[in-house]
Structure formats: C-alpha cells, structure tokens
Simulated assay, not measured.
Amino acid sequence: MQPQLNLLMDNKVTLYGASGHGKVIVDILESQGIVIAAILDDNPNLTQLLHYPIVKPTPEFHADCRNVIFSIGNNHVRKMLSDKMNCTFATAIHPSAIISKHSKVKEGTVVMAGVVINPATTVGKHCILNTGAVIEHDCVISDFVHISPNVSLAGNVHVMEGAHVGLGASVIQGIKIGKWATIGAGAVILKDVPDYAVVVGNPGKIIKYNSANE
C-alpha cells in the first residue's frame, strides 16, 4: 500500500523526482533537520530513494502542491513541470555553502555543498548550483540553469534561461551565455555564447546548436 501524501503540511518539503540528483537534495535537507514529506515520481519501476518510499503524483497534487523542489537534473523537464503545476516552492541550501547576504537565491533552487556565491549576484528559480561551484560578484543566473560541479564564473557573468555549464568549466568576467546553451566539461569561455550553442574546448568553440526542445 502506497503512503498517503498530506498536501497541507507547509513545514515539510516534497521532492518531485527520484533521481541521483534527488539523493543529494535529500542529504541537504536531512543535514538541516528539514522533514521530507514525500518523494514523488511517476516511474512505476521506482519504489524507494534512499530510505524513503516513492509516491506516484496525483492530479490533486498537481493542482495544489506546497513546498516542492524539483529533484530532476534535466533543465527542460524542470521548466515543463513548473509551467503546468500550481505549486509553491522551497529551496535547498547546503550548510557549507557560502552565500553573500547581498545576493539573492530564488525559489525552487538547490545549492550544493561548497558553493560560493559572492555579492550582488542573483540566482533565478529552479536552478542547480552543483558541488563546489564558484559564482563571483554581480553575476546573473537565470531560471532553470544548471551550474555543474567545480565551475568558476568570474564577475558579471550572465547565464541565461536553461543553460547548462558543464563540469569544471571556467568563464571569464563580463561574458553572456545564451539561453539553453551547453558549455562542455572543462571548457574555457572567453567570449559570449549565442542562444542554444554547444561550446567545448580551451578556448571554447561552437560545435553545434541545440534544438529548442533538447
């Protein structure tokens, strides 16, 4: 018998997505004593994430859900879900993250262990700032962005909606990374990146373009 989800418990967090990424978010929440109300996933083959049973989401949940975090690594899927669900959202911030009091992190975003966010930076909704990433002063991280582990963004970098900056990439100051662009692992970005571009190497070079639905 599946556990029942109490939608009215505003002091708890519900995770949507039973993935490896979800395991990291569970660890963050548990480290701060935050209660996990449920973990939802519509894959019938998944029954448990760590020690939590997985609950199938219902139409009622989609219509009225509270304190949700999308524990899904795919930027497009997070955007699709946020567009169709009537939810309020929580954030998950690891206690070892260093976030300037002069910066802002918006709802639905997850900040992993060892992340540094320096002053006058804004991080949008439903972003992933992964382990050990450094976001310098005056950066703008738009909604649904994924900044991978050990990425370094210098000052005044703008990362537009849905972009994915790969493992260990470095971006010099003042650069704009276009919406839904992909920066390859270890790339060094020395000039602006167009929307949907896929950039790899040192220095970074465009090798192709993503489609709007990739």
Rank of each mutant, 00 (worst) to 15 (best):
V111L: 05
N45W: 00
Q2P: 13
I128C: 04
D42K: 08
A212Y: 04
R66L: 04
S82G: 04
N130W: 06
V151N: 09
A97N: 09
Q4M: 10
P149Q: 12
M9Y: 07
P203L: 09
H76A: 13
K106G: 00
K84I: 15
I117A: 07
C127S: 09
K106P: 00
G186I: 08
Y16G: 01
K79P: 00
V68M: 11
K191H: 13
P119H: 04
V77A: 12
S96I: 03
V68L: 14
H102C: 05
G22Y: 01
I183W: 03
A187S: 12
N67D: 11
K84Q: 14
G201Y: 08
A120M: 12
E60F: 03
A92E: 06
A38S: 10
D27C: 04
V151E: 09
M85H: 09
L15C: 03
G22L: 02
N67F: 01
S103D: 05
A18V: 03
E214L: 12
I98H: 08
A37Q: 09
G201N: 14
P44C: 10
M112P: 01
M85D: 11
V55K: 02
Q4A: 13
H126A: 03
C139H: 04
V200P: 06
Q173C: 01
H146E: 07
T88N: 10
L15Y: 02
N130R: 09
H137V: 01
V199E: 05
V13M: 07
